[in-house]
Each structure stands twice: as structure tokens, then as C-alpha cells.
């Protein structure tokens, strides 16, 4: 079932074109990522989906209704960037108050527990750390038991541990059947969480694929470095179809190639009784794919 459908979305602010032409669909139960450099149009796109902005042209459907339909507000949870609360409201008061906004709210105590906020319930918003504010913001987005949650830059400002905890939480939310739309600029986050990713660049779709698929587009070049236990003739390895380049770097050898490179190289060496010490393997990452896809031409 398609939960979000964006077709030829365009939006400009005065003379500035924020989104030129963006189309994608998000399926039920998916974690769908929106990646892109700063100013690519990611936030505008999700704001149009959330009904906070009206598209200039194009069509957006969410849960079978046009974006902006008032009925959707109870069914979508939104966590925006730079959206704060009153300094003097406590975590508990905020959770209780916002619960009252929804027809069918989640148990805020449980949510606070899941997000590690239980010890902070009596703390005022102004006294929370950046990470705690962010977690409260995520909790507020999930309070209404939404069918779709839109999270914009959800782990920005979190320390690495808190970021990993949030990722676990996100996986947990998906397990409850919530469809998630994540805007992020952390590759590791997108690679780890997302089922599919749309890369937006200069207001248009640069690529739409699974994380693995995107990485493959960057080429599956691999790089192996090691120190051989005994010298050997280069031809031994350059003869392999997987190997493209071999170079000597002092006592080390660097090999660039593709396919099942590591296995091929190690097998040949093992046959000749050579041990590859200090072995490292580098593969293309989503980072490489991202740079490859959004490189300015």
C-alpha cells in the first residue's frame, strides 16, 4: 500500500526555487530517507507533505488524502527542526498537554520511558540538554499514535550514544507499523535505518534506491592494503581478473579492484604460503555514493 505519493512537486519562495521537480512514493511500513546537501529542498519537501506549506504545483497524497487535509493532522506525527517549547514548561506538562491534542494518544509515560526522559519529567524545557530537547521533540511527534511519522534531522545535536539509542527507537517504531519519513544528512544513519532513500539535489531527485543500490552506483571499487610475509611476483595477482591496479608502498602492497577481490587475492597468496599481515579493506560507502550523486557538474 502506498502511504505517501509525491508527484512533480515544485515550490518557490519569491525568486528562489526551493523544489523544482520531486516525485517519489513511500510504502506502508517503510523507513524512507530523504538525503541531500544543505539547501537541496529536503525540508521544503517534507513541509509540503506535512501540510505546513502549499505546493506551487504537483500533487501530494498522504494516506489517500491530499496533503494539508485537516483530518491528516491527527494521523501524521511531525518533528521539525528548530521547533522549541516554552522555557518554563516541564517535560511532563508538555507531554500531558500535547496528549490532549490527539483523539487517540499514546501513553506518554511509556514514550518518555522509551526515550529515556523519565528522570527528566519534572525538568523545565529550558534546563534540558540539546539531546534531551530533541528526544522530547521526537516523543511529541509520536504522541498521537501516528500512522506516518516525519522526522526532520532527528539526531542532529545528539551525542553518538544518544544517536544510537534513537536509531534503536526508530526501528522499534517501525515495528509498530508506523511508516517513517526521515530527513537526514548522516550517511551512517540513512544506511543503517532506511529501506529506501531518495537523494535530492538542487530541488530535484538525483537518485532513488535502496542504500545498497546507491552504493553500487558509486562503483564497487575496493581497495586492499597489506604487508606480505614474503616477497612475490606482481604478476601473481595482476593476472587475476578482479585486480585492476597493484602498487608498492614501502613494505606494503595496495590493490585496487572489484568483484570478489579479497577472496581472490587471499586464495592466491595462501596457495603460495604467503600471509597478508595488517590487512585492510576499503569499500565504497553511502558517503561515496552521495558525493558521486550530488557532485556539482
Amino acid at each position: 500500500m502506498t502511504v505517501i505519493e509525491v508527484e512533480n512537486l515544485a515550490k518557490r519562495y519569491g525568486e528562489t526555487v526551493a523544489v523544482r521537480d520531486v516525485s517519489f512514493t513511500v510504502e506502508a511500513g517503510e523507513i524512507f530517507g530523504i538525503l541531500g546537501p544543505n539547501g537541496a529542498g529536503k525540508t521544503t519537501t517534507v513541509e509540503c507533505i506535512a501540510g505546513l506549506r502549499t505546493a506551487d504545483s504537483g500533487r501530494i497524497t498522504v494516506l489517500g488524502r491530499p496533503a494539508g487535509d485537516p483530518e491528516l493532522r491527527a494521523r501524521i506525527g511531525v518533528q521539525l527542526q528548530e521547533s522549541e517549547l516554552q522555557d518554563k514548561i516541564t517535560v511532563r506538562e508538555a507531554l500531558e498537554l500535547y496528549s490532549a491534542f490527539y483523539p487517540n494518544p499514546a501513553d506518554w509515560r511509556e514514550l518518555a520511558g522509551d526515550l529515556g526522559l523519565t528522570a527528566k519529567l519534572r525538568t523545565r524545557f529550558g534546563k534540558l540538554s540539546g539531546g534531551q530537547k530533541q528526544r522530547l521533540s521526537i516523543a511529541l511527534a509520536l504522541l498521537g499514535n501516528p500512522e506516518v511519522a516525519i522526522l526532520d534531522e532527528l539526531t542532529t545535536g545528539l551525542d553518538p550514544q544518544a544517536r544510537r539509542d534513537t536509531w534503536d527507537l526508530i526501528s522499534g517504531i517501525r515495528d509498530r507499523g508506523v511508516t517513517l519519513l526521515l530527513v537526514t544528512h548522516f550517511m551512517e544513519e540513512a544506511e543503517r535505518l532506511c529501506d529506501r532513500i531518495v537523494v535530492i539535489d538542487k530541488g530535484a531527485v538525483a537518485a532513488l534506491d535502496t542504500p545498497g543500490g546507491l552504493i553500487n552506483r558509486a562503483g564497487d571499487e575496493q581497495r586492499i592494503r597489506f604487508r606480505p610475509s614474503a616477497p612475490f611476483a606482481d604478476e601473481l595477482l595482476t593476472a587475476l581478473p578482479e585486480v585492476r591496479e597493484l602498487s608498492h608502498q614501502g613494505p606494503r602492497i595496495e590493490i585496487i579492484g572489484s568483484g570478489n577481490l579479497l577472496h581472490a587475492v587471499i586464495s592466491v597468496l595462501a596457495r603460495d604460503g604467503i600471509v597478508a599481515a595488517e590487512l585492510t579493506l576499503e569499500q565504497a560507502t553511502l558517503d561515496d555514493a552521495f558525493v558521486h550523486l550530488t557532485r556539482g557538474e
Binding site: A50, L52, Y102, G144
Partner: peptide
């Protein structure tokens, strides 16, 4: 301040 700090915007995302 409510506008400046995005509190009104947050409200806009809820049914209220």
C-alpha cells in the same frame, strides 16, 4: 517569542 522559537509552528503540525 512563540513565533520566533517555532512553538506556533509545532502547533500547526498537531490537530490543534
Amino acid at each position: 517569542t512563540y513565533r520566533e522559537r517555532g512553538i506556533l509552528r509545532r502547533f500547526a503540525t498537531t490537530p490543534v
